[in-house]
Simulated assay, not measured.
Amino acid sequence: MREFADFACALADAARGVTLPAAMRIGAIDNKVEGAGFDPVTEADRGSEKAMRGLIEYRFPNHGIAGEEFPDRPGRGRHVWSLDPIDGTRSFICGLPSWTTLIALLEDGAPVLGLIDAPRLGERYLGFGGTTNLITGSGTRPLKVSACRSLAEARFSTTDPYLFKGAEMEAFERLRAKARLTRFGHDGYAYARLADGTVDLVVESGLQPFDYQALIPVVRGAGGVVGNWEGGEDCSGGRLVAAATRELFDETVATLAG
């Protein structure tokens, strides 16, 4: 796993080589959604994923690759790399610094290593083997989630309240009413802040595997709890609850259920 962790950092470096220069001058923005709606993608999204794919294909030719911008490449073994080259493309094209690159290593379908890289902030969150560390230019330090156990004390984050519809919106409003404060717009970076103890709860819906697979080892390695809206561990439905403590997780699940 140490070898894989070092390689994940090399992948993040390669992605930074594409995304950081592009962040200084945003080029053409395409819309992946036809008709109404807006799902932006840039050449930086595509170019950084290509750079990471090239390294994986060279170093680990038997490993599978599943990314946001290109078709999956099946592997010939237990391992698959999950790539989200720019998580938070809306923030990226607005010149905001909170977008991240998400990298996960799956073993037999389960994420065993996760990396959240925040290039504009100079922060890298690496989780594997039951630990999570923050890597910056000043060094490396272990992370631990907060001790928050109740919604009344919780700092709650979700990317966008308008992603929730119908009954999900009603559930979100119940959470927002109970939480101490609510912050929006941070995408994967909110989970990094949860791992470092400055956010206590993140709840989202409609996530794709490349959106959440890197987040799980990072949060769990810092002592947090990650599961689905029903309280189980299967996140394949794309509805995630990430909480600092089991007590906060359980109260959140109960509140979502109404």
Rank of each mutant, 00 (worst) to 15 (best):
T131V: 13
P142K: 13
G137Y: 13
A167L: 10
G88S: 07
G114W: 09
G129A: 11
S146H: 09
F164Q: 05
A147R: 15
I65S: 00
P71L: 10
L143I: 12
G77P: 01
Y58A: 11
G127A: 06
Y125T: 08
R141Q: 13
G54A: 15
H79T: 08
D39Y: 08
G137D: 15
G37N: 10
I56L: 09
F60E: 07
P61C: 08
R46M: 06
F156R: 03
F70H: 05
V112Q: 00
T42E: 09
W81M: 02
P40L: 12
A147F: 06
T89R: 11
L134N: 08
R76I: 03
P40R: 10
P119G: 07
S82T: 05
A152M: 06
S150K: 14
T89A: 09
R149V: 10
P111H: 00
P71F: 10
A66T: 02
V145I: 14
D84K: 03
C148H: 12
L115S: 02
T131Q: 14
T140S: 15
P119Q: 05
R76E: 14
A154M: 11
I135Q: 11
R90S: 13
R73C: 01
S48W: 11
L55G: 02
D108N: 15
A66N: 08
L143D: 12
A154I: 11
R90D: 09
E107N: 02
E168G: 14
N133L: 03
L151W: 12
E68Q: 07
V41T: 15
D45I: 02
T159G: 11
D160A: 10
T136W: 05
A51C: 09
G122F: 11
T100C: 15
P97A: 03
E107P: 00
T159L: 02
Y125P: 04
T100N: 07
I116P: 01
I135H: 15
E168V: 02
R59L: 00
P71H: 03
G77D: 13
T140Y: 02
K165H: 14
T100Q: 04
T101S: 14
Y162H: 13
D160W: 11
R78F: 10
G47L: 02
G129S: 12
P40E: 09
A66M: 13
I65Y: 00
S150I: 03
K165D: 07
P119D: 05
S146A: 15
A66S: 14
L83K: 01
V80E: 08
S91E: 15
T136C: 13
L106G: 08
S146W: 10
M52Y: 01
R53Q: 14
R78N: 09
L143N: 11
D87L: 08
N133C: 12
S157G: 02
T89C: 08
G88Q: 06
R149I: 07
L55N: 03
G127M: 05
V41N: 01
H63I: 09
E68G: 03
Y125R: 05
L102S: 10
A118H: 04
P111V: 01
A44N: 04
G122I: 10
E153W: 06
S98G: 00
P40S: 06
H79V: 11
G67Y: 03
F156A: 04
I103D: 01
F156H: 05
S146P: 08
N133T: 15
A147W: 05
Y58F: 09
D39C: 03
S138R: 15
F92L: 06
E43T: 11
K165W: 12
L115A: 01
